[in-house]
Amino acid sequence: MTTTQALPRSVTPPPRARRGRTPGARLWEASPLTYLALILGCVLSVFPIVWSFIIASRDNSAVYDMPPTPGGMLFENIDRMLANEDAAFLYGLVNSAVVSTIVTVSVIFFSSLAGFALAKLRFRGRNGLLLVIVLTMMVPTQLGIIPLYLMMVELEWTGTLQAVIVPFLVQGFGVFMMRQYALAAVSDELIEAARLDGCSTWRIYWNVVLPALRPAAAVLGLLTFMQTWNEFLWPFVVLTPDTPTVQYSLKILSSGLYQTDYTALFAGTALATLPLLVVFLVFGRQIIGGIMEGAVKS
């Protein structure tokens, strides 16, 4: 990158380059065609989910009716999920919130730290370590389940939330992703300048790198949270119905005698989605907020 050096603390850009009259500015205005394409993309994205909400509002015989138009049983179906004497669904929501929050915060923190080190610090074995991290992601998940379960039995963690938290506090995916972002988003000059300023590596990470990685960290956070929230296989293996995650509760509450209660399932899915919307808003602001700042990184 050939641009001028910035001082370490001036991560926030000078107002000049932000928007306005520079010749390139019109490039950043969206054309009507852009809107059209994006709106089409959104409609396609949202349609199956809207459909699942519609099913949530129908009775069980109308699950397969075309065209999909809403019915009037949404609240009855939601009631069926909630009106359950173990309150399994609410427990599931709370537990999932705890698990997903911890995992997300941890993944962001450790991933950005390791990603920064792998992208921007020079040390022996760096590339080898990166390779190992990438390799860890390639291990087929299903086969890990049996030995991991055996470990949980040994640790006496089965049926506890640690079992679905601790093994996932770090993820190769996150480290790899942050490393790739850091390559581009944090300029070497910036780090060098900070060093000249006498910053320790830790301070460089905390004051220079982390702010620069913020949009990417928000993306990682959003994706991690959603994935943890929707994870089913492992929680189902290692937890018990006493300590369910939300997907686990959903499964239990929608099983009838030898068949699935689809409307209850979709009503529950709709309910389970609401907390994610909050997460969306939180991270969404970060992602959007990052855009203008990120523009003049180096």
Partner: peptide, 27 residues
């Protein structure tokens, strides 16, 4: 780009990740 409803459009395209594969698989 700069546009109106930026947040909405950006979030709109990640919405498919919001529900579990198993539920949407039925759809």
């Amino acid at each position: 780009r700069q546009m109106r409803g930026r947040t909405l459009l950006r979030m709109g395209i990640v919405v498919p990740n919001i529900t579990s594969v198993a539920a949407v698989g039925i759809i």
